[in-house]
């Protein structure tokens, strides 16, 4: 997994890539929590993620909880159909704001 963080319109855009599995999730978790600590809204771009398992999803859940505790927000962008099915199974689609692409996320559109 490689990743990039950039600032767009006052938000932090975190782009995760590749497979986020048991081996890679700790790295994703550290990155996400570091971003949340910067007290800006975080958009997590998953468009280049080829696979995400429960450990990766758990990292997103923890980061969302941290963001809410700090009064900021964390939303997801371009969740793959595979991941979306898992989100729906665990009803996480009711917890996260999920946007189809970055433009929609920046505009605040679902």
């Amino acid at each position: 997994m490689s990743e990039a963080v950039r600032e767009v319109n006052g938000n932090l855009v975190v782009s995760l890539t590749g497979e986020i599995d048991l081996d890679r999730a700790p790295e994703a978790r550290r990155l996400l929590l570091d971003c949340v600590k910067r007290s800006k809204d975080v958009l997590v771009d998953l468009s280049a993620v080829t696979y995400i398992d429960s450990s990766g999803i758990a990292s997103l859940v923890e980061a969302l909880q941290w963001a809410k505790q700090r009064g900021t927000d964390l939303c997801l962008v371009a969740v793959s159909p595979q991941a979306l099915r898992v989100f729906e199974l665990a009803r996480l689609d009711k917890v996260f704001a999920i946007h189809p692409d970055l433009d929609a996320a920046l505009a605040g559109e679902n």
């Binding site: 700790p26 450990s55 758990a58 923890e62 665990a90 009803r91």
Partner: peptide, 20 residues
Amino acid sequence: EHTQLDRQTMEIMARLKLEV
């Protein structure tokens, strides 16, 4: 037994599966 994940991640994973 099989991972080096931190406890918080493991707990969230387990709770997710309880939801499922």
